[in-house]
Amino acid sequence: MTTLVRGVTKVFGRKRVLSRDRITLVLFMAVPLLIYAIWVWGPALATVAISFTRWDNVSAPQWIGLHNYTRLFQDPLFKQSLINNFIWLVVFITIPTTAGLALAVILDRKLKFTRLYQSAIYLPMVLSLPVIGLMFTWFFKPDDGLVNTLLGLISHGNISPGWLADPHLALAAVLTAAIWRHVGYVMVLYLAGLKGIDPAMREAAVVDGANEWQLFRRVTLPLLKPVTIIVLVITIIESLRAFDLVYVMTNGLEGPNHATELLATMMFNAAIHNYELGYGAAVAVILLLISLAFIITYVAQVMREEEEV
């Protein structure tokens, strides 16, 4: 309490905090916090509680302990979702991040038409996922989509995969759309990071005779580390949140033979379609546990930067 008073007095140049100001300050903190608690942290905790119940959305929830979790670990669909989420994550953390970084480094040289290139690659980020999903469904349509029309021209009609209807290709098709969108996101984050680097650092390395690869590997990349952490966390969280594209592109939510089933779609199906709120909540808790590790990393990084200033 004394620290609070001392801190506040310091800010106000030794003047006492008037009671009207105190009310303003308390309201400024309390109103947003209350809203955040009711709609964000409260529900997150409630989900954990719901996951220990059987609940059909009509009758009162029944406490069943860990039953949802034991059921989950025997459910082949859960295994399938975990594997798909893992594939999504690995692809997402390698392809669009590398491509986005490379593009950012090239575009940072202020070549002619940089704006134009940048806009073309960033544009997908502006589109909604349902728009992207529909565009790519049309793109990958088996009989007369653009991809198969072109493949047909090259192979004289011999190659015409089913894409979204093919259990082996459905996930790849959805991922193509997701990557198309994500590259621009990563690129923009890195471009912003590159702008923050002191040019003198890189010029010094050039004077010391570093070639371009060395310059990138030993100077630029280490300096971009804070951005890289943010990019990785965002990429991971985006792959755990992935839902809309699968929902739109493989209409039946899970694709052929659940080929595109993800934790997020499985959760949605269980809770909203099958009215198994407890079971859906258990899937959500698994998602939360996986995310939590990355959320903590992110918060730690942000707080570290906070202290540096």
Partner: peptide, 22 residues
């Protein structure tokens, strides 16, 4: 501050059922 920052990365699915009920 940490609570606000940590919340921004929560997967929406974690909030879905309670927000729907709310």
């Amino acid at each position: 501050l940490m609570l606000f920052i940590a919340g921004l990365l929560l997967p929406f699915q974690v909030l879905l059922i309670p927000v729907y009920r709310l």
